[in-house]
Nucleic acid binder design. Structure first.
Length: 516
RNA sequence: GGCCCCGUCGUCUAGAGGCCCAGGACACGGCCCUUUCAAGGCCGCGACACGGGUUCGAAUCCCGUCGGGGUCACCA
């Protein structure tokens, strides 16, 4: 059976982490079962939409490798895929409901409704709106509406129980008596989300509506709308929401600024963003996909992480390659409790994926970060590329994110080390160390091969001769040539720097030690 | 507040009556390895929200309580 699922974001200018997770579940199911995954843009709220706000969303999906069979830029047989271009269909459907007595005109003003609501609230009674023309004959209602267009409401049938058999949550029911008659068309003829969605899902032959659990309460109204329209209801699956890290609060689209913590800001600055840039972009925070791309996460890791958030393959699989995820994804194994987003685990997974990545791809991924940090120029010739490759190889699995290259490798690209006083103090200013280093420097000047294994052998023999611990010299060597105590293996660093530079830097380091 | 959903280690989860005095992963702590940092190895910490049932037997079924969340628009 070919299934059809859809994800319907509104163009907000960024791709939200929770949204992608929902989209991913839709996508995985269609890829597994065979069918179409449709992207539809819910832009009925014209005031809030900017045309340029769509691109970041499409870019985000493409970066993650989540492709759509129908939708923006690819088209499809059920287009257009923008709700703002489909309003005539909603009007047509609403009018049909009006003629059939499933909808009626409502002349209440917003103010009147508000007053009613408040009154009900004070009386501690649930507010359920029933318009005065509910039971007016359809033909009469049509005349009223044509004479004086106004909002159209769906006539919710009384005394019924709406039963949903949700694919994730099981049986859920609602009493229609507690459901107010919802507006489906505004006085100016624009449809409301709840109605447009149903009309579109019918028109686009959607078979499975897989969406965030926050839509669960919309479902009875939508099911009644299908009924009124005389259409079969699709299957529904409500995916639990994604919560903030270590929290039970929904990872909200609003108020994302609070995720830009000092640590997050520091990370962004480390990869070359200025405070002004960070503040001017509302999508640079951990609740968006763009953030992870900017920090150099591998998209496969994000997909794996998100797929595993609320869904599991079995009792132990954590790293689940996409192929496997597609082969085994099922809604039955989606957890029905909310899940908190865990940045630590994502980071771990990113590292796991990085170590699987061929060196050439790592080099390619790292270059933009080096360029933005100004450590290499805009053009990358063979020589630069080769040096980058050597650094990447030396970094080994210290590189979990592409941006991690900036953490340890900067001294290897800068013309001179930036000496950390504490490191100099601890490793160079020890009694006897400067002399030792100076003596070893002479050996380095004379050693025939300047490759890492040869250098290590040279140093070990040197230390053995003198009966000193190799560590002493190693640390001094690292600090004098890189200025810091952390980094890739010191012999790799020396080999990358090259003889001349190493000799120069040792002298430089020694001068530092003598000075301060 | 009404309606609805949810409740296993800090976090993600396994668990569909006995395999569970609850398994894995991330994080955390310790030790080992070691030239730093990573990585790796070993060990440890750590949960069935609570209370009643049902049953020979319950994390698993039922009821209640408590707690958390979602949603209540002429937003999406």
């Amino acid at each position: 059976m070919a299934i059809r699922t859809r994800f319907a974001p509104s163009p907000t200018g960024y791709l939200h982490i929770g949204g992608v997770r929902t989209a991913l579940f839709n996508w995985l199911l269609t890829r597994r079962l065979g069918g179409q995954f449709i992207l539809r843009i819910d832009d009925t709220d014209a005031e809030r939409n900017r045309p340029e706000a769509l691109q970041p969303i499409l870019d985000g999906f493409r970066w993650l490798g989540i492709d759509w069979d129908e939708g923006p830029e690819v088209g499809g047989p059920f287009g257009p895929y923008f709700q703002s271009q489909r309003n005539h269909l909603y009007v047509e459907a609403a009018l049909r409901l009006l003629d059939q007595g499933h909808a009626y005109p409502c002349y209440r003003t917003k103010e009147e409704l508000e007053a009613e609501r408040r009154q009900a609230e004070q009386a501690k009674r649930p507010y359920v709106h029933r318009g005065e023309h509910r039971d007016t004959p359809p033909a009469e209602n049509r005349r009223l509406y044509d004479a004086r267009p106004t909002a159209l409401r769906l006539k919710v049938p009384l005394g019924q129980t709406v039963v949903l058999n949700d694919l994730i949550r099981g049986r859920v029911e609602w009493q229609t008596d507690l459901l107010g008659d919802p507006v489906i068309l505004r006085p100016d003829g624009r449809a409301l989300y709840n109605f447009a969605t149903v009309v579109d899902d019918v028109a686009m032959r959607i078979t499975h509506v897989i969406r965030a659990a926050e839509h669960l309460s919309n479902t009875p109204i939508q099911m009644l709308t299908y009924q009124a329209l005389g259409e079969p209801t699709p299957l529904f699956a409500h995916v639990p929401v994604v919560n903030e890290p270590k929290s039970k609060k929904k990872l909200s689209k609003r108020d994302m600024g609070k995720f830009v913590t000092p640590e997050v800001r520091a990370k962004l600055r480390a990869v070359g963003w200025t405070d002004a840039q960070i503040d001017s972009r509302d999508d640079l925070n951990p609740a968006t996909v763009a953030f992870y791309r900017e920090l150099g996460y591998l998209p496969a890791a994000l997909v794996n992480y998100l797929g595993r958030l609320g869904w599991s393959l079995d009792d132990k699989s954590e790293m689940i390659p996409l192929e496997q995820m597609i082969a085994h994804f099922s809604l039955e194994r989606v957890n029905d409790a909310p899940a908190s987003f865990d940045p630590d685990k994502l980071y771990w997974l990113a590292g796991e994926y990085m170590r699987l990545l061929p060196v050439e791809e790592r080099v390619a991924g790292v270059i933009p970060f080096l360029q933005r940090a100004g450590l290499i120029g805009p053009t990358v010739d063979a020589g630069v590329r080769d040096r980058v490759r050597r650094v990447v190889e030396a970094m080994g699995d210290r590189l979990k994110l592409f941006s991690d290259i900036l953490l340890y490798a900067a001294p290897l690209f800068r013309p001179e080390p930036v000496y950390e006083p504490a490191a100099v103090q601890k490793r160079l200013k020890k009694p006897g160390v400067p002399e030792l280093l100076w003596a070893f420097r002479e050996r380095l000047a004379a050693v025939p091969s300047f490759e890492a294994p040869a250098l290590e052998e040279l140093l070990r023999r040197f230390c053995e001769e003198r009966g000193i611990a190799a560590g002493l010299l190693i640390h001094a060597l690292r600090v004098s040539t890189t200025g810091t105590e952390v980094g890739p293996g010191v012999f790799d660093c020396l080999a990358i720097l090259g003889r001349e530079e190493v000799l120069r830097r040792i002298a430089l380091g020694l001068r530092q030690a003598a000075a301060g």
